[in-house]
């Protein structure tokens, strides 16, 4: 892979959630767009501070559920009424009320698949390698570390000034992130 930039970016660690939120807004206000924050717990308001879009998971789940429900109903209608009609006591073969339970279960099943695999896909997981893992202190992210990254591919990124800017926001430490 041809690397466009000498490093992946800069990673700043902050002492707490509040400091991270303030810094995130400052970085975004300064015009940086290729930014991301890393936290041990979901933080209220952090997506807004970073200017992230609303999650598209609900739309995927809705589609998954509708596909599941349609699959269930059509499968049963086709197999019970068209392809393999069973005459049981002369009852109608297109007995849709009896098709509800299986169609309902398939609705839930497909919607759940959409929620789980859709959110993984939107998050680009599984992704075993990511440059931020190269920073030694980053292992704290899953315990009590609060991090903010600016990627070098951001058009406004300029190593010296960006680093000084991050340092002015009161971080514990600013590290270079190797590719």
């Amino acid at each position: 892979m041809k690397l466009q930039t000498p490093i992946y970016g800069l990673l700043a660690e902050f002492p707490g959630e509040h400091e991270l939120l303030v810094a995130s807004r400052a970085v975004r206000d300064a015009g940086y767009r290729k930014i991301d924050a890393y936290t041990p717990v979901p933080v209220n308001g952090l997506s807004e501070a970073l200017g992230l879009q609303k999650s598209r998971v609900p739309l995927l789940v809705l589609c998954g559920g509708m596909i599941g429900g349609a699959t269930g109903l059509l499968l049963q209608y086709w197999s019970m009424h068209i392809y393999y009609p069973l005459n049981i006591g002369g009852r109608p073969t297109d007995s849709w009320p009896a098709f509800i339970p299986a169609a309902f279960e398939l609705t839930i099943l497909f919607a759940a698949f959409a929620a789980v695999f859709g959110s993984f896909a939107l998050n680009q997981l599984p992704q075993p390698y990511h440059p931020v893992f190269n920073v030694r202190s980053f292992e704290k992210v899953s315990t009590d570390g609060w991090f903010l990254a600016i990627e070098a591919s951001d058009p406004r990124f300029d190593y010296g000034p960006t680093r000084r800017f991050l340092e002015s926001l009161g971080p514990v430490e600013v590290s270079d992130v190797d590719h």
Partner: peptide, 20 residues
């Protein structure tokens, strides 16, 4: 799966968890 607690991850994750 390479989870790194990114704000983008949490954003989708929380929504998925709630919907589940």
């Amino acid at each position: 799966l390479g989870w790194r607690g990114s704000a983008r991850h949490w954003n989708n994750y929380q929504m998925a968890y709630l919907l589940l």
